[in-house]
Write a protein that binds this DNA or RNA. Sequence first.
RNA 1: AGAGGAGUGGCAGAGCGGUCGAAUGCGGCGGUCUUGAAAACCGUUGUACCGCAAGGUACCGGGGGUUCGAAUCCCUCCUCCUCUGCCA
Length: 424
Amino acid sequence: MLQVAIIREEKEKILAGLKKRRFKNGEELIDKVLALDQKRKQTQRQQDDLLAESNSLAKEIGNLMKSGKKEEADKLKVRTAEIKKITADLGPELVQTEEELQKILYLLPNVPHADVPEGGGADDNLEVYKHGNIPSLHADALPHWELIKKYDIIDFDLGIKIAGAGFPVYKGKGARLQRALINFFLDEADKQGYREMQPPIVVNEASGYGTGQLPDKDGQMYFVTEDKLYLIPTAEVPITNLYRDVILTDEELPVKNTGYTPCFRREAGSWGAHVRGLNRLHQFDKVEIIQIRKPEESYQALEDMCLYVQGLLEKLELPYRKLLLCGGDMGFTSAKTFDMEVYSAAQQRWLEVSSVSNFETFQANRLKLRYKNKEGKTQLLHTLNGSALALPRIVTAILENNQTPEGIRIPKTLIPYTGFEMIS
RNA sequence: AGAGGAGUGGCAGAGCGGUCGAAUGCGGCGGUCUUGAAAACCGUUGUACCGCAAGGUACCGGGGGUUCGAAUCCCUCCUCCUCUGCCA
């Protein structure tokens, strides 16, 4: 959520940012914000003045009553009754104005960083780095949805039977590979100083608002109506919300957390060829890394996180490219995002396996996540997170890129975790 | 799930209708003293909003109500503790 004070002071800059995002009617919404903010201030001023008068009258009445001057007290009560009547209207008006303001603020996405390129969609993303060789596969190479059947390691039909489409069952070496990847990712994160957290995989409404999934992505999360809980779409939600309403001290910074969780997404979108197999699921596993940083350090942290993720892909021997997302392709809450894409040789296309973002103060403002700076002033922090990594597409890439006529070769780094070298 | 008890500042803990943004202790910060440290003493120490400022307003688990006036009384929800039940 953008800060009203900043909208007030840097309106033009924000408008330019929204335009870069291809965000529609930004100007209209910004003007509404400013008008509502003005109204809010005025109303509060009136309200505060009246309450101040009422407070001092109440004190006087108290004193008069004590000294037995009941009649004089009753005279003053006339005025307090009057004030009460006015504030009875003013109060709700103030609340309403604040709510309207809040509602519009929730609609405004984050402002992109200056480095973020112009553009409307995926085609305008900037490739900033590329690594590894695309393997040439043998003649009978198969896409992963065939491979998983051939080796009986992931079963969609069983998932459909017990849950529904998009809920695969991992079997035997498939299950073992999942567990190996999770442990590998967590161990690597630990080595980099990320503290492992195991959060609940359901969260309340306040947490959904805290990280920006609500109200923007309501309907894309599974919701348990009976208990008003959301199934998390990513570990970012619970782990970042750990710091909701928190003022961190200097010694507690920077915060570097990691966590493995299953992730749930309703994704009521299209189910065509490009989302076959493991490409898009309702439930999948992911290890997430999260950082909380002082503003002046956050972009260095973003670079560090990217390099860390790239290191993982290199250890897994996967060819990848790094994209700087353009304004039109970035997530709602992000100021700058890098995507890592792994090349799937059998599908002959790039698959997004990680997204690393700096949210600057956008989430922190909603979360009320602050720290005391050197001058002793409380200031909003910057939040960042990245997938490190999401399993299904990594599994896809390993299966497809590493297939040989003899079976699927497990990357060297993973063998200590899987306990086997081949899926055959 | 049933019965009872409780939720107050960083922590502990008083207050139970006006003098309470809130005693006291601990902790934190600044200072005096000291070669240095400890002790002792003095001062200071929540958050948000409005205001150029002086200052004002709100917040004692959340929401609502009674009252001229609520941390204090009432209603409701949430959370925690104890006992009973159920259960991985």
